[in-house]
Amino acid sequence: MLPEEKDTMNLLMKLPLESLNLEAIAVVTNIYRIAQGLRNKMEREVLSEYGLSWTSFSILYDLWIAKQVETKKLALSAGVSKATVSNITNTLERKELCYRKVDPRDRRITYVTITDKGKQAMQELYPRFHKGETEIVSSLTIVEQKKISNLLRQVIRDNQF
């Protein structure tokens, strides 16, 4: 157990809960720690050089994969509000990495499209990002990585994340 886990468990054991699922707490807390650690490491070591936050990178990544995405879908994918997508898209547009286009059939729908400059930035950035991903899990074997991926996919499916 990590020292932080011990502190958490010691505190929670004092609460008047009927039943305390320590393993559930450990799983969720460690997923959160990994997510925050990954985000901080990538922003500091990779994304800052390109002037991107984690969320702006996530949006640009989605655009790189799909070429064009509706703002509502970008918000869902990044786990942020449409207003946040709008603010980030403004920044990405100023950097000429994407542009917005209103659907002529329904003016309430806006699509965001990656530009050639955005594609080029992702082609330069992603290998460095991927290097960071592999470093983070380098202490695990490929079999262990697959096992964790499968278990996390199960949680994602079961909770419709």
Rank of each mutant, 00 (worst) to 15 (best):
L52A: 07
L52P: 06
L52W: 03
L52K: 02
L52S: 06
L52C: 07
S53H: 01
S53L: 14
S53P: 03
S53W: 10
S53R: 10
S53T: 15
W54Q: 08
W54I: 04
W54L: 06
W54V: 04
W54D: 09
T55P: 02
T55M: 08
T55C: 08
T55I: 13
S56V: 07
S56I: 09
S56R: 11
S56Y: 00
S56C: 04
S56L: 01
S56N: 09
F57K: 04
F57T: 07
F57P: 08
F57C: 07
F57L: 00
S58V: 05
S58K: 11
S58T: 04
S58N: 12
S58W: 00
I59T: 08
I59L: 15
I59M: 13
L60M: 10
L60E: 04
L60N: 13
L60T: 09
L60F: 08
L60G: 05
L60H: 08
Y61E: 11
Y61N: 10
Y61S: 10
Y61M: 08
Y61K: 12
Y61I: 00
Y61D: 15
D62V: 05
D62L: 08
D62G: 02
D62W: 02
L63T: 08
L63Q: 05
L63Y: 03
W64T: 04
W64V: 00
W64F: 15
W64A: 10
W64P: 00
I65R: 15
I65L: 15
I65Q: 10
I65A: 10
I65E: 14
A66P: 02
A66H: 15
A66Q: 14
K67A: 04
K67G: 08
K67W: 11
Q68M: 10
Q68D: 06
Q68H: 02
Q68S: 12
V69F: 03
V69R: 06
V69S: 01
E70G: 09
E70S: 05
E70N: 06
T71I: 11
T71Y: 01
T71G: 05
T71C: 07
T71K: 11
T71E: 10
T71F: 03
T71S: 13
K72C: 05
K72W: 02
K72Q: 13
K73D: 14
K73E: 15
K73P: 03
K73R: 15
K73Y: 05
L74P: 02
L74I: 01
L74K: 02
L74S: 00
L74Y: 05
A75D: 01
A75R: 00
A75L: 02
A75P: 01
A75Y: 01
A75E: 02
L76M: 13
L76T: 13
L76Y: 00
L76C: 03
L76D: 15
L76G: 13
L76R: 13
S77N: 15
S77P: 00
S77V: 00
S77T: 07
S77R: 14
A78G: 05
A78Y: 04
A78N: 05
A78P: 02
A78H: 05
A78Q: 03
A78E: 05
A78S: 13
G79D: 01
G79A: 06
G79N: 03
V80R: 04
V80A: 03
V80Q: 01
V80T: 08
S81F: 09
S81N: 07
K82S: 13
K82W: 09
K82Q: 14
K82G: 10
K82P: 08
K82M: 11
A83E: 12
A83G: 12
A83M: 10
A83K: 14
A83Y: 09
A83C: 05
